Computed example of a mutant assay.
Amino acid sequence: MKSLMITKYGDISSSLEQQEVTRPIIEANQILIKTYSSSFNPYDYKVVKGDFKAMGKISFPIGIGRDVSGIVEEVGKSVKKFKVGDKVYSRPNESFVGTMAEYVVTNDEDTALMPSNLNFDESASIPLVGLTSYQALVDIAKLSKGESILIHAGSGGIGTFAIQLAKHLGAKVTTTTSTKNISFVKSLGADKVIDYTSQNYLDEGAVFDVVYDTLGSNYTLDSFKVLKSGGRVVSIAGTIDSITAEQFGLNKFIRMILSFQARKVTKAAAKMNAMYRFLFMSPNGDQLEKLAKLYESGTIKPLIDKVFNFDESIQALEYLAKGRAKGKVIVKIREDI
């Protein structure tokens, strides 16, 4: 079968290659998905660039892609929830990364039936961004009705989902974007929009109960400048905190280095009596079921910027890396049935 593979660390055009690989063999609790659509996320091009070398060694070549929608081709003998022919979607476990492929293996517990009102492209736009923001806002931040949240980069794949989810939870949503995307993010439910080309979100003052840091770098530390005392900062791009480092199973030496790097953030959080957590999302089929219901009810709508064919998958990742996509970038692995 064909699969897009990372062959080395480096730039996108020279580090990715479509290769013929052996079709995977499933175990008792796994399913084999005949892939129809997949999608890229910023995490993918960061892996190619080598941004996560400290998290563990990679043996090249290795697959790329963490979102999949398709049809169940085969089920393991212990699988009860799914049958051959089911339309499903998943964010596979890291052991099975490589959804830019004609077939994908995933654990049954990491899989759910696709939202009944969505097609393969739309369903493939959901798993990673949906699970990431659900776990950030519901599980960690515990965002509640009437609270105020700042969501950075509201027009991106994460932002477009997070705005809709935060509004569903009853929060007052402020987001940042560029001038051309103001009406777009307002249409998703944003109550206030900060145009970063002419405004500074730091001028808001300490008014937010929750800051969802999707950008990292200086934005992580600056989150505490706009946070109420006792507020919560959840980051998917900033400094890794000690709890997450332990969850990763990193050795003590690496954790010590990360702790040193996080000292400014840790100090800022303590000063504000605030919570800081770095989130590395976990695959979760039960949560995908909950998300499917939100899409089926029309509470959340899929946002797709552009769809590429499988043979254009390298160009698709290059396009995403430019940082201008409004919503998700989809790769159609095969034509819809």
Rank of each mutant, 00 (worst) to 15 (best):
T220P: 02
K87C: 14
L250P: 09
D336L: 13
I314R: 11
T35N: 04
E73D: 13
V138H: 02
N309I: 15
S178K: 15
A162N: 02
I151H: 01
Y196L: 12
K57S: 14
D241R: 09
T244K: 06
V265D: 01
R324V: 13
V233E: 00
L317C: 10
K267C: 13
L227P: 05
N117A: 15
F161I: 03
R263D: 03
K167D: 01
V47L: 04
G231V: 03
D305A: 13
K34W: 04
K8P: 09
E335L: 09
K192N: 14
M275V: 15
I149R: 02
A237I: 05
K46A: 07
F278G: 10
S59D: 12
T197F: 05
D44M: 07
V211I: 07
A292C: 06
E73W: 06
E204A: 11
P283W: 00
F253D: 15
D336C: 10
T177M: 05
D213A: 07
F308Q: 14
V329F: 05
V88T: 06
T22L: 11
V72M: 04
L288R: 07
V307Y: 05
Q261P: 14
E296W: 06
M1R: 15
K81S: 08
V307M: 09
R66H: 12
T266C: 09
N117D: 08
A237G: 10
M256S: 15
G85W: 00
V84L: 05
K2F: 06
V88G: 03
G156V: 02
V226G: 04
G189Y: 02
Y295W: 07
V21G: 06
H152V: 08
S14W: 03
R255M: 09
N93A: 14
E122N: 13
G298L: 05
G130N: 01
V138F: 01
K53V: 15
V88K: 03
A270T: 13
S123T: 06
T266N: 12
A28I: 11
D305V: 10
I26M: 03
E318F: 11
L303K: 13
N117T: 12
K267L: 12
N29A: 15
G327E: 00
Q199F: 08
L303I: 14
V84G: 05
D51T: 14
L221E: 05
A28D: 10
I64V: 11
V47M: 04
E147M: 07
K2S: 10
P24V: 08
A162R: 01
S187T: 13
L143H: 05
A166Y: 00
K225F: 04
A124G: 09
P115L: 06
S235R: 04
V234Q: 01
T177Q: 06
L279W: 00
L4A: 10
Q164L: 05
T177L: 04
T175F: 00
V97K: 15
V97S: 10
I194H: 01
Y134T: 03
D191I: 08
K301R: 13
I243Q: 11
L4Y: 04
L150E: 00
G230V: 07
S187G: 12
V105I: 13
T244W: 00
D222Y: 06
Q19F: 04
A206E: 08
P24D: 03
A166D: 00
L320V: 14
L188P: 05
A28N: 10
F280M: 11
T35D: 02
M281N: 09
I300K: 07
M100Y: 10
T239I: 14
A321H: 12
D11M: 11
Y43C: 08
N273A: 14
G76F: 01
